[in-house]
Computed example of a mutant assay.
Amino acid sequence: MDYLHYTALDFALDEHFQKWILCPDEETDSFWDTWQLQHPEKRNELEEARQTIHALQFKTDLLLEEQRHRMLQNILSSIQKKELILPIVKEEKKLTWYTNWKHIAAGLLIGTFAVSSISYWYLNQQVSYATKYGEIRRITLPDQTKVTLNAHSTLHFERNWQSDKPREVWLEGEAFFEVTKKTPHDPAARFQVHTDDLTVEVMGTKFNVNQHEHQTAVSLNEGKIQLKLETAKPSKDILMVPGEMVKFSETNQKIEKITIQAENQSSWTKNFWVLTNTSLAEIAKRIETTYGYEVSITNEQLLSESITGVLPTRNIKNLLDVLSTTYNVKIQITNNRITISK
């Protein structure tokens, strides 16, 4: 297949490309990873096609929402154009102008009530996105902020963002944010990410939030953010600048602020992990969180061994192959369990 002249829409409609995005395997990974490297000029089309495919992966209830939304738009359009559809009346039952008017008035009243009800229902719904183990999803928020949602994570927000209030989202898991900037005096300039432990408040920046097991880690790539640690005792605000990471544990109330290579913390968005003196025990924990496997390390000495380098994360097999070679260990997968041994 000659993909060189494909548009984003062509890629989105291509079954082989769809399979790679939705149900990747060794064959599709090998083909498309190689093809991307050979044709970097098609990167934008591929990314647009990827987002298009993910955008169509709504659950049934969300599809019904979209159907209702289209119905609402049709009703509004009809009223704006004054195109009322009146009931069909047989010729032998001639209606007076008064009776006709009553039907028209009733139709207008019902139509107006329907529009109001559907509008209120639709605009006050929450939008939720959830990823499965091993899945990364890219989302565009109502203000065009870009969010990359990591595996086994959930993001939700109100559909109707008010122009006079901060933009707010709630996160469970991990996500990377590229926030759309607004003018400082705009009431909606503030962008807030809420986790169980804290609130990240920004005005336009790039940052990573990782929230798991009552601990949240925030790393800043660009701009400035302020952390509001509501669950800290006493509550505390922390200002961050690029290249910093703040970890907060609600369980032990420990706050840690360190200098890092922020790009390494968000490297998962590009399907690899950049590791710096990372222990095998920590890698095992990441595998459990990202892929949903239970990881067992039979040799205690292996737990503290560390690695510095890059691990591919597009699929679990490639990751384990590299890990096995790097550590010179045996790795066995049985059902949902991974066993690492010498």
Rank of each mutant, 00 (worst) to 15 (best):
L4T: 14
D10L: 05
F11P: 03
H16T: 13
W20S: 06
L22F: 01
E27G: 04
F31G: 06
F31T: 08
W32L: 02
D33V: 13
L37P: 02
P40E: 01
E41Q: 13
K42L: 10
T52V: 06
T52E: 12
A55H: 09
L56F: 11
F58G: 15
F58C: 15
K59F: 14
T60D: 15
D61M: 14
L62H: 14
L64S: 14
H69T: 15
S77I: 03
K82C: 07
K82R: 10
I85N: 13
P87E: 08
I88F: 12
E92Y: 12
K94G: 09
H103A: 13
A105M: 12
G107P: 03
I110D: 03
F113H: 07
F113G: 11
S117R: 00
Y120R: 09
W121S: 11
Q125N: 11
V127P: 00
Y133H: 14
I139F: 03
N150R: 00
N150H: 05
A151L: 04
F157E: 00
R159Q: 07
N160R: 08
W161Q: 11
R167Y: 03
W170L: 00
E172A: 05
E172H: 02
T183Q: 12
D186N: 14
P187S: 06
A189F: 01
R190H: 12
H194W: 07
D196A: 12
L198P: 00
V200T: 03
V200E: 00
V202R: 00
G204C: 01
K206L: 00
H212K: 08
E213C: 08
H214V: 10
A217I: 11
L220S: 02
N221V: 13
L229A: 05
E230M: 09
K233G: 05
P234D: 06
L239K: 08
L239Q: 11
K247W: 04
S249A: 05
N252Q: 01
Q253G: 03
K254V: 11
I255D: 07
I258M: 12
T259A: 15
N264G: 10
Q265G: 05
Q265E: 14
S267I: 04
L280G: 07
I283R: 02
I287C: 08
Y291M: 01
G292P: 02
V295I: 06
I297P: 00
T298K: 13
E300L: 11
Q301A: 15
Q301E: 15
L302Q: 07
S304I: 11
I307F: 14
K317Q: 14
L320Y: 02
V322P: 05
L323R: 08
T325R: 13
T326K: 01
T326I: 11
Y327C: 02
V329N: 01
K330L: 09
K330M: 05
N335M: 00
N336L: 00
I338W: 01
T339E: 06
